[in-house]
Structure formats: C-alpha cells, structure tokens
Design a binder for these strands. Structure first.
Length: 287
DNA sequence: CTGCAGGCCGGCG
DNA sequence: CGCCGGCCTGCA
C-alpha cells in the first residue's frame, strides 16, 4: 500500500456524479469539497475534477496509472458509443445528453457478486450500510487522510463467518445466500476467473448456480463487474417503466414480460443494450 | 401502523 | 415449465 496521485485531462465522457450515482456502485461517497472517495479492491481512492483536469489520490497496492485506467474503463471510446446510440432515436439522445459522463466501472467480480446478492429486494441506503459493516468487520483496514477505510472482505476473510453473524450485521434473509455463495466459491464449485473467458450466456448460467443469484442479479454482475458484458440488459422496475413508456406502451406496465422488454432492447440497441440501459435508467430515475 | 425497496427461492398446478 | 407467496429490515 502506497500513497500515490495522478492527474489526467478531463473530457465530456467523464463526470463524477454520472459515474458514481448512476446506480452501478455502492462504495463511493461524496465529500464536502465535491470530491468522491471510494474503496476499491486495490485500496482507497479520492477523485475530484477542477480546471479541466481529473485529480486522483489514494493509498493503493499497485501502480495508480494501471488501476485508474482499468477501473474507470479509460481505454474505451465512450464518445463513439454515445454517437452510435444517440442516432437510434430522440429518447436515447435525451438520456445520453443527461448522463453523458457515465462510464461503466470495472469492479471486482467477487465484490460485485456479493454486493448484488445483498441488493435483492432492498434499498440503496440499506445496501450501502450492510456493505460498509461487512467491510468494517471482516475487511482489511486502510488508513487514508486521518480516517480508517476497510477493503471489501475477500472470500477467505469470510470463511469462518456463520449465518448468524451475517444476520447480525443486518443482512436479513440474505444471510444464508451470502454464506452459501461464499463457500461455493471457496470450495471451487465455480471458478470466478474462468468466467472472464466464457461467452456471455455461459458465464450467465454459471452465475445463476450461485445462491441468491437470479436473472436480475446475474445481469448486474455481468454488466458492472470486470466481466463487462455490454450486450446484457438488466431489467428492474425503472427499466421496465421507461421501456414501456417509450417503446412498448402497454397500459399496464406490470403485464409486460421481461422477454418482450429484452427482445425490444436487443432490437433497438443490439450489443450496446447494457450501456443503453444505464443511460435510460439514470435519466428516468433522476427525472 | 401499513407499504415497500434495484429479487430469489421453493412449492404447486 | 410459469406463477405466486413469503421473506429481514429500516425508512416514509
């Protein structure tokens, strides 16, 4: 762990609020000076924008250039993606204009799996609280700027945690899911690294074998982790609502099947459906 | 006090 | 198979 910093030029494809508040992550918090501080796999990172630059500072276990480039998906051309999607229709154009600084983060696969299991039938403040307590209790402490931060616990760090202890930090009925999935991974019933090499549908069916991982959670993992599958279209209540309003126009949105939404998304957005979903979701939820 | 939030699981027809 | 009830917890 080493204190490092980095400055890069800012452009239209990078906005802190869009990135951290579009619903893909749970461990970034805004500070009084409008910077954001987050805990990632490699340590603690603070990010702020000013004078046309982006300033990164953190305590990290590897080279900050590599970490930032990888985590923020900096080698991907979002300008091109947004151009392609904007041409589809006026709704995409509007939602992209609203969330033009969104980037899909490369979040650690294990952490993303556990985080989205916790997200099931839950709300954002509580999800963040549970993840924070889980990290505080079992994760590695990292001091940064007079404060203690805690890395997301590894599977090994959760090895001896009982179901009752999970319940104790507020997981509710998800306690058993977390316990089972942790041990499935520790017992190598599924090899997380190997998922990166699989095609999307194979990786998806592997994820679905994990306890507490259903279609929605699997899709979020595929899109928001290092698996990075932009052809996946997670459907929650907001996405269902916006897809029905814009394209399907059924009088009762609850009667619209997931398959119909999924087919419509693929027809409209093709292999960029995942990121299209993110612009629509963020736009709809904030307006 | 009810309702509900970024679903999943298990049982049943 | 598809459908449906139940479920921890905290906050409105």
């Amino acid at each position: 762990m080493e204190k490092q910093n980095l400055v890069i030029k800012k452009n239209k494809d990078f906005e802190l609020k869009d990135i951290f508040e579009c619903g893909q992550c749970f461990r970034w918090n805004k500070n009084e000076d409008d910077s954001y501080t987050g805990v990632i796999k490699n340590g603690v990172l603070n990010v702020k924008t000013a004078k046309g630059n982006i300033y990164f500072e953190g305590i990290l276990n590897e080279d900050i250039n590599q970490i930032v480039n990888d985590y923020f998906d900096l080698s991907r051309d979002y300008t091109e993606i947004k151009q392609t999607l904007s041409q589809i229709d006026k709704y995409m154009e509007t939602s992209i204009k609203y969330g033009q600084g969104i980037r899909i983060l490369n979040q650690d696969l294990w952490e993303t799996i556990i985080s989205f299991i916790i997200s099931a039938n839950n709300n954002i403040p509580r999800i963040k609280g549970i993840i924070e307590r889980l990290s505080q209790k079992y994760g590695t402490k990292v001091p940064f700027e007079n404060e203690d931060y805690y890395l997301f616990p590894t599977a090994s760090q959760l090895k001896d945690v009982t179901v009752a202890e999970f319940r104790g930090i507020g997981l509710g009925f998800r306690d058993i899911r977390l316990y089972e999935t942790t041990h499935m991974i520790l017992n190598s019933e599924i090899n997380l690294e190997s998922l990166h090499k699989l095609d999307t549908q194979s990786a998806r069916s592997q994820l679905l074998t994990l306890s507490g991982v259903g279609p929605k959670v699997a899709d979020c993992i595929l899109l928001f982790s290092t698996l990075k599958r932009f052809d996946i279209f997670p459907i929650d209540v907001w996405v269902r609502r916006v897809m029905n309003e814009l394209y399907i126009k059924n009088t009762d949105e609850n009667k619209v099947s997931k398959k119909l939404i999924n087919d419509m998304a693929f027809e409209k957005f093709g292999n960029l459906a995942g990121i299209a979903q993110q612009y629509l979701f963020y736009w709809k939820r904030e307006n």
